[in-house]
Design a protein around this nucleic acid. Structure first.
Length: 910
DNA sequence: GCAAGGTC
């Protein structure tokens, strides 16, 4: 470049007005800086002189506001009925400047005409590069001699900006191409599926949920996976079958206080085994302290604040929606109080003046003293912030940029969000909290229990980050070998609970993990679900699908498509990545992706009946076809208390008793899948309330029920009918809900199962069958050897078939099995158990995960999930009698009655 | 009347 010479005119364009202002301020050092209005209200023009590598320049700096152009179909295809939606996969598209951006375009044209150079200061990401080419297109159209240069910068700090302008590069066409491809795919898929499903389903009466307006059932590659997360969790909850479990709790009270010990086995799903172990503990209740471990624990402050973290934390701490959070954050940013709020970056670059940011806050009445302490070297509170490992190279983490102790025009939410940003920043540059943790383990009759206590030694960052706490529980002092008698030792029962509905923070995490949306758009997709009536947010700010949302996902799921899962977006995203590094061409990716999506679209259209059926479950359709006949009344609905529950056949042909107020009331009792006929009788149940509950005459399909059950059964759905309950447990119901579990729950089950199959049988070391099916296990003498039993000595040398650890021979002490010997695994992590006589007789069966009592094979049970604390925790115990039949009939071990369990026994403790 | 991505 020639040094000196006549000044040239350089047009500089930033992605947004604030960047134009900052860059102009930095380059001009605020000297000789002139500001004038452009055609657009927001996009000012800054003028100053500058020298680029010795070339004097008259700099004109202005901005766009994000994308200057939009992609749309040619006019002829824009009307919904103008073409077959399938045509939208090849209909011509064009980029154009929309009406509300015309004034910006005009400014660019006017200024570009009198410039020699165009320097692009767009954000340094793919979208920024694409906007750069939009600006180029507009400017080149009026001045084809323009020299095009790109400024690369990662932060709005002096050093970066001066370096960028002295080292201008070429714009990156690959980056821009990737975005072009993404836009075109999004448009074609979105428009085709939206038109298709909106027009297909327009005859369903969904007005009750949505006001009276014309409803658009939109489809988008981001909004649908977001909906998918909500529906999937909802189905997981629906598929959950609560299961009773048992656990032993122990407490010890001393002068120093009380310690509560929890059982290392967690909890068992088998009552009998829990009782056997419990009784052994009660008989020899002396506890011996076997381990006392003390250690220092650190709790680290959070990483610097990214957009997603800001949204998640505002939702968690203040219950603010992500959309509202971004609105308030934008306000604070516009007014200069916080840095740019749309950032993926969660680490500060090395040049950042962190002390300066803290310094600004020392005057605040609440957190000022803490800020002061941070700056006091002697206090030792300062720590350089950690890095979360993300850097979008465009913006720093969100941090305060101007001190405020609250502005008069701020709403409460403005105050809260500013406080969060400040306290989060101060926390980031603070030492972690320090605690002393003590873990104590005790042994009672061979069972291990543990407890832990924690004392906080130094709160450090927790002093300023009031949103987080660290529970500190003080326990009495114990020494190794110490013995004591527990104050309480109880056998307690509980039931497993399903996981909760997704919170907004959960949803953001799901999207983040799957790469759905960007930090700037994720809240939009969540809001779209609400706007389209696909989901609702309840009082606890948790998301549940509406009937429309569920029906749409169900329809595509029934087609066998994963259009509602994040995979499609992930694939697109990886293709975009390939385009942006030049490994694939835009044209190839577009052709390939659109061809596949068109085939998918055409196939989905062929299977449109699935969508119609799914909608038909929830909504009535005009025209009267497919109306379900009202069935016979069984009882009044106990949920809505307004309508009757009637016996009906679902669309799939499965029998159920459902509330007539459906879909407003969704109370339903699904009947066993093995029912072939059912009719409501005039007989009523004597025990179920509120009555009357009419009995139903059932007929079961012989081959679908276990031996011992009668094909004809006069049953009650009120809850008293043990036969019905057992058949539901064994055969499952015709409910569509459990079958839905083939989402994450079932696939992980399947995964486990197939892994299992790959393993060699532990008896004969052969592949192809599991140990539970091992043919070698069905003959007595071979069996004993194979098990490692030593028939001569009679001593225990059996190995646990679950984990391989040697078993211990123990004696049962229950009313029903007193004196009977059994083997139990000596590992505390494992719950393997078998009666000694069963092992000898060869009638032993392998424990199967999740099976207890009369339950069927878990692989047949679809989406069964054990939620809450018990998720993923199976005892693996099966009790079988000498005949190989499951031991049934759980009884209270105190009085022997089958009507209740020990925890509810009236004789207990007497 | 349709997407998602910028930003005001």
């Amino acid at each position: 470049m020639a040094g000196g010479g006549r000044p040239i005119n350089v047009l500089n364009v930033a992605e947004k007005p604030s960047v134009a202002k900052s860059v102009a301020g930095i380059l001009s050092k605020n000297q000789g800086l002139r500001i004038r209005e452009g055609r657009s209200r927001y996009n000012k023009i800054y003028e100053f002189n500058y020298s680029i590598r010795g070339q004097p320049c008259h700099m004109l700096m202005t901005s766009v506001t994000g994308h200057l152009m939009e992609l749309d179909f040619d006019e002829r295809y824009r009307k919904w009925h103008s073409c077959d939606p399938a045509d939208l996969y090849h209909a011509p598209v064009r980029k154009h400047v929309p009406e509300d951006k015309k004034d910006i375009k005009k400014t660019l044209e006017e200024e570009a005409r009198r410039c020699q150079w165009l320097v692009l200061w767009l954000d340094c990401d793919r979208e920024g590069e694409n906007i750069a080419f939009e600006v180029i297109e507009v400017c080149r159209a009026v001045n084809c001699h323009l020299v095009l240069r790109r400024a690369r910068f990662s932060a709005l700090i002096d050093r970066e900006i001066h370096q960028a302008v002295q080292n201008l590069v070429d714009p990156n066409q690959w980056f821009a191409d990737a975005v072009d491809a993404r836009q075109e795919i999004d448009l074609r898929i979105g428009a085709s599926f939206t038109r298709f499903q909106t027009m297909l389903l327009k005859n369903f009466h969904i007005d009750s949920v949505t006001d009276d307006r014309n409803l658009v059932l939109s489809y988008g590659p981001c909004q649908f996976p977001t909906l998918g997360f909500v529906v999937e969790r909802y189905w997981e909850i629906q598929a959950h079958e609560s299961e009773e479990f048992w656990t032993i709790n122990c407490s010890h009270k001393s002068e120093e206080g009380t310690a509560t010990f929890s059982w290392m086995r967690g909890h068992l799903f088998d009552y009998t085994s829990a009782v056997i172990i419990y009784e052994m503990c009660v008989q020899e209740p002396t506890a011996t302290v076997t381990k006392v471990r003390q250690q220092e624990k650190l709790k680290y402050p959070p990483y610097p604040l990214s957009t997603i973290e800001l949204e998640k934390r505002a939702s968690r701490y203040f219950r603010m929606s992500s959309e509202h959070t971004m609105k308030v954050a934008e306000d604070l940013y516009q007014a200069g109080f916080i840095s740019y709020p749309r950032t993926e970056t969660d680490s500060f670059s090395s040049g950042t003046n962190l002390h300066g940011i803290v310094q600004e806050q020392i005057g605040h009445p609440d957190w000022g003293p803490y800020a002061q302490r941070l700056l006091d070297h002697a206090a030792g509170l300062w720590r350089n912030p950690g890095s979360g490992g993300h850097d979008d190279k465009a913006h720093p983490p969100i941090h305060p940029t101007k001190f405020s102790s609250g502005e008069s025009r701020w709403s409460q939410d403005h105050c809260k969000l500013y406080e969060l940003v400040v306290r989060h920043f101060l926390a980031c540059v603070s030492q972690p909290a320090v605690g002393a943790e003590t873990i104590v383990e005790i042994n009672i009759a061979g069972e291990v229990f543990s407890t832990s206590g924690r004392v906080i030694l130094a709160k450090n960052y927790l002093d300023v980050y009031r949103f987080e706490s660290w529970g500190g529980l003080v326990i009495p002092t114990y020494v190794h070998g110490q013995q004591f008698i527990p104050t309480t030792l109880t056998l307690d029962s509980g039931v497993t609970r399903p996981p909760p509905l997704l919170s907004e923070a959960d949803l953001l995490s799901c999207m983040d993990k799957a790469g759905i949306g960007t930090d700037a758009t994720m809240h939009d997709h969540i809001k779209k679900l609400l706007d389209r009536f696909y989901a609702i947010k309840d009082a606890n700010t948790r998301f549940a699908p509406t009937n429309i949302g569920e029906a749409l996902v169900m329809g595509y799921d029934d087609m066998g498509y994963e259009l509602w899962k994040p995979n499609l977006r992930s694939m697109m995203e990886s293709d975009m990545k390939e385009v942006s590094v030049g490994n694939k061409s835009k044209a190839d990716v577009l052709a390939n992706c659109l061809q596949q999506m068109k085939a998918c679209f055409l196939d989905a259209r062929l299977k449109k009946v699935k969508l119609l059926e799914a909608m038909g479950i929830f909504f009535e359709r005009s025209g009267g076809e497919d109306q379900q006949a009202a069935g016979e009344v069984v009882r009044q609905c106990g949920i809505c208390q307004e309508s009757n529950m009637v016996l009906k056949k679902s669309r799939d042909g499965n029998l159920m008793v459902g509330c007539l107020a459906f879909p407003q009331c969704r109370n339903a009792v699904w009947l066993p899948g093995s029912v072939s006929e059912a009719a409501v009788t005039t007989n009523t149940c004597n025990s179920c309330t509120p009555g009357p509950v009419y009995l139903i005459q059932f007929k079961f399909r012989q081959h679908e029920i276990p031996p011992g059950f009668n094909v004809n059964h006069l049953g009650c759905i009120g809850g008293c009918d043990e036969t019905l309950r057992q058949l539901i447990e064994i055969c499952g119901t015709g409910s569509r809900i459990p079958a839905r579990g083939r989402g994450p729950t079932a696939s992980s089950n399947n995964g486990q199962q197939s892994n299992h199959r790959q393993r060699a049988c532990i008896y004969c070391q052969q592949m192809g069958h599991s140990s539970s099916d091992c043919p070698s296990q069905f003959s007595g003498s071979r069996n004993a050897r194979a098990n490692g039993m030593n028939p001569q000595s009679g001593e225990s040398s059996i190995q646990c078939t679950t984990c391989g650890t040697p078993c211990v021979l123990r004696t049962a002490n229950t009313a029903n099995n007193r004196g009977r010997k059994f083997y139990s695994c000596s590992s505390q992590e494992c719950n393997f158990f078998v009666w000694e006589d069963d092992a000898k007789n060869g009638t032993r069966r392998m424990p199967q995960a999740g099976v207890s009592g009369s339950a069927s094979n878990p692989s047949q049970r679809g989406g069964r999930s054990r939620g809450g604390q018990s998720r993923g925790h199976n005892t693996g115990m099966t009790f079988v009698s000498a005949t190989g039949d499951p031991i049934s009939g759980r009884r209270c071990y105190v009085c022997g009655e089958p009507s209740h369990f020990a925890n509810a026994c009236p004789n207990r403790g007497s």
